[in-house]
């Protein structure tokens, strides 16, 4: 739905596409063929180019990664990916990513709500600015956040008397990952709130529901699939994030060292097998998250279809 109402949504948060069944569903005979007949030219050229380019740029390199991992024996692989320092990095990376995604879940819903429902000065500007984390290079975000949240920084100096240190601590990682994931929930929820029919809320009000009840029972359930998708996208992005985190994290092993940094550390020591093993674990997790997002989308289209 969102795809039709919003002609040019953001590539980076584009949801995995669901195939819509066209009325001209393939006939039984057509099912046997690889491609349905069409008068349009260029299929072989376009698909051939796509597959070759995809294989060269993405598939071949990624399979090199997996093949390189198999040069390690299973026990050696297991030893590398479950070493204490690596386990601490997983805990930190996933913990901080989860926390940042949860912050973005609530803040994203709030921002989307305010942008869709209310009028205020500078709204268009704010709306355009939400995509800043997609456009701003991560290294720039990293040094800017570090300067702000350092103990002598503009925000940091207010937090020191409260006993909170953000920069160079795990909390700093959460701040950086919150910045990076900020647009995802906003941009997935915004079109859903926009499309929500006012009649539904009017009906709820007529039936005697309070505004809070309407939100809880009518509005919120409609946004759940979009919230979940945005949450998972933000989480997936945060898990792999490197540029913005390394400046603010402090990068102390066992305390503030994220998994991508661990991979770089191993590479710098020419431990290619070790770096590859950890990277493979990250890759498998990425695949898992893609699968999860596809699943949420599938569930969403099914639910949406049923409501219609």
């Amino acid at each position: 739905m969102a795809e039709l109402t919003n002609p040019v949504p953001d590539a980076a948060l584009r949801l995995p596409m669901q195939r819509v069944d066209h009325p001209s569903a393939p006939s039984r005979a057509g099912m046997m063929q690889f491609k349905q007949a069409s008068v349009l030219p260029g299929f072989n050229l376009a698909l051939g180019y796509t597959v070759v380019y995809l294989s060269l740029i993405v598939l071949l390199p990624l399979s090199a990664l997996v093949l390189k991992t198999t040069s390690l024996s299973w026990s050696a692989f297991w030893q590398v990916v479950t070493a204490d320092q690596v386990m601490a990095a997983y805990r930190l990376t996933f913990g901080a990513s989860l926390l940042a995604a949860v912050i973005n879940l609530f803040a994203g819903l709030l921002v989307a709500w305010v942008l869709v429902r209310y009028e205020f000065v500078g709204k268009r500007l704010i709306d355009a600015l939400v995509d800043l984390p997609f456009a701003l290079p991560t290294a720039v975000a990293g040094i800017a956040l570090t300067t702000l949240y350092a103990p002598n920084g503009l925000i940091g100096e207010w937090l020191v008397p409260l006993g909170i240190q953000v920069a160079f601590k795990p909390l700093g990682i959460v701040v950086a990952l919150t910045f990076i994931g900020l647009p995802f929930v906003v941009r997935t929820v915004q079109p859903v709130l926009q499309d929500l029919e006012a009649e539904l809320e009017e009906a709820a009000a007529c039936l005697g529901a309070s505004r809070w009840q309407t939100f809880r029972k009518v509005i919120f359930p409609a946004t759940v699939p979009a919230l979940l998708t945005g949450f998972t996208l933000a989480f997936a992005r945060a898990v792999g994030e490197y540029g913005s985190v390394i400046f603010i994290a402090g990068n102390i092993p066992f305390e503030s060292e994220i998994v991508p940094l661990l991979i770089i550390g191993k590479l710098e020591q020419y431990d290619y097998a070790g770096a590859t093993a950890i990277a493979t674990v990250m890759l498998v997790i990425s695949f898992g998250l893609i699968f999860l997002i596809n699943l949420i989308q599938w569930w969403h289209t099914r639910r949406h279809g049923m409501r219609k």
Partner: peptide
Amino acid sequence: SVSPVVAGLVYV
């Protein structure tokens, strides 16, 4: 969905 660091690593 692939971490940028992993993307660099595969080319190495």
